[in-house]
Write a protein that binds this DNA or RNA. Sequence first.
DNA 1: CATTGTGAACGGGTTCACAGCA
DNA 2: TGCTGTGAACCCGTTCACAATG
Lengths: 205, 205
Amino acid sequence: MAKEIPDIIVGRLPRYLGVLKRMAQEGRQTTSSQELGERLGISAAQIRKDLSQFGEFGKQGTGYSIPYLIENLEAILHVNRVWDMVLVGVGDLGHAIARYQGFSDHGLRTAMIFDNDPKKIGQRVGNFIVQDSAELAEKVRQAGIKIAMITVPASAAQSVANELVKAGVKAILCYAPIVINVPPDVHVQYIDPVIHLQRMTYYLS
Amino acid sequence: MAKEIPDIIVGRLPRYLGVLKRMAQEGRQTTSSQELGERLGISAAQIRKDLSQFGEFGKQGTGYSIPYLIENLEAILHVNRVWDMVLVGVGDLGHAIARYQGFSDHGLRTAMIFDNDPKKIGQRVGNFIVQDSAELAEKVRQAGIKIAMITVPASAAQSVANELVKAGVKAILCYAPIVINVPPDVHVQYIDPVIHLQRMTYYLS
DNA sequence: CATTGTGAACGGGTTCACAGCA
DNA sequence: TGCTGTGAACCCGTTCACAATG
């Protein structure tokens, strides 16, 4: 792979993959850039151009084989394997994520959960026993975990992130409503409902 | 307001507002485009240009008054009031959102919650009694609610969205991992952790 | 004949650089 | 002097349009 893929394209690939998997579940075998575009609200030309960055997956006149395209996208995104993840912060949201069933079949698996509240440590949540955050760095490094989800309060998020980086984590999904500082080789994504909601209130009278 | 503001700029405003509010809590009175940029990972020029779309909020040599800029951004985003929201789907995630304390102080308030599971209807979750989805459209319209959060399974999301649209909702935050179809005057935002995570696995060896 | 893959054209978002002002 | 606001330049992502092809 000589060429650098723009991040904005990478960001669309999981969406393509998700729609394709749903189509596969519906029993579909082939699709076209046009149909994908309609389902996603993206132009057909854009989808073709995005996919063509990684190879020639389609056939003229026929379109794309859904299983074949899924297979290739999973390989591109490195989800043709299972990534263990660590969850830090077992409040209401952490609780929900710990029990979430939607990661399997997408190359992701919650492997361990941590909290620093003595009342929570040792308790069972979903299929997990809440472990002590004090042991986070050691346990995470030992397990070779590279992906983390942070659901602690904003005030604790940066120090948790520091621990995770120390433990060798390279990708963080942060639910705390702050920007965290990490080394350039660590990727961070944010999920904050307030941001999304305020983006929409702009358009409300 | 003669000019149309690009959506990509609108999408950044809530992030500016969030950082400014945190600065205000820290007791700060003024800031600069450079400092904002460093905190957010955005160039100073971009922040100045974004803000200048809406007026001249800064002072040369001094920077921006934090309270003044907050006030203006809140007005622009229409969060200088409180928007009632409806939550549909009281699973683990809905449960967490119903109890979430992070909406207040941001112009947002969960006002009612619904589910179609007879075992959940009538139960108390947070400060709410779970109401029957069958009454959703009527209750939501009567309350004049314009914003909804959907936390039902993917298979139910579209029909819930249809009900919400019927009830006059104009903004939907969808946690179900599918694209929903709505009229062009209804805004939709999606939150799906799998999308964010797979975007990062691309960069992992 | 439908649909892909892609070079070229286009458009718009970002950065630059500096005048203007406290 | 320090920092904003902004026109101009630049760059990059998107769309267009069509040759290629099963």
